[in-house]
Amino acid sequence: MIVWPVYRLTLRALLLQRRTILLGLLAAAPVLMALVYAVAAKAGAHHFRFYSHLVQELFVPTIAAVVALVIGVSAIGDEREDGTIYYLVATPQSRLGLIATKIAAAWTATLVLLVPSLVISALLALEGEVDPSSILWPAAGVALATLAYCGVAAWLSLRTRRPIVIGVLYVLLWEGSIATFAASASKLSIAAYGRALVAERLPEAAAPVVGPAPAVVILAAVAAITCWLGARALARVEL
């Protein structure tokens, strides 16, 4: 399914962009906050509560979402913009394979920026209380949520000329506003399912929308469906 030459090409293109440096700075914001907390925290402060808020209210719904959306859009949108997508489409590779490869490369680039930030934030905020599960469950939430965001971004970049605007509106308006006070709206929030995985280890944040197993299934399904829709769009839209 993965077309490895296209995967390597896309990953290289994504990591060489100037935009990636800016996204790296955005991804590093939680590290800065954890550092400030570590320096300023008083004795007896509840480290887990801070870390939980940091991951559930900033990292997953904003930082990870924006980084994944921008990189996911770049993986296809930039090639549509400069015309290099013609060289990939005019080949006998399956459209599903090409889109799956683009999503995989965007996901990899996203994790390259986010995982170090998550780990360093945990080490700084939790001080001596770090255990593997306090990193692994948030990492699983971030990984699966960003996979779904990358899928949505790839599909949007083929369906609209303004994928980033639409993606950011979804993150900020729907997930960041409407879904926070309307319980039914959070069922259509990728971040909510990502947080459901994080909540398995950091339970002090808001009650999860579903348990961890359904969250995994739903996020994987979002990625798979948007990949299929993207492949369908690649075979139909004007390039």
């Binding site: 090409l9 400069d82 015309g83 290099t84 013609y86 060289y87 006998p92 590779q93 459209r95 139909r236």
Partner: peptide, 28 residues
């Protein structure tokens, strides 16, 4: 568009679309 396999027999030179600038000619 429905049969990508046909591209094994097709070569395309698009207008206004230079190949990836960070690759060498050999790599492209």
């Amino acid at each position: 568009r429905r049969n990508p396999a046909v591209y094994e027999r097709v070569g395309v030179v698009p207008d206004q679309s230079p190949p990836w600038p960070f690759l060498t000619a050999q790599e492209v």
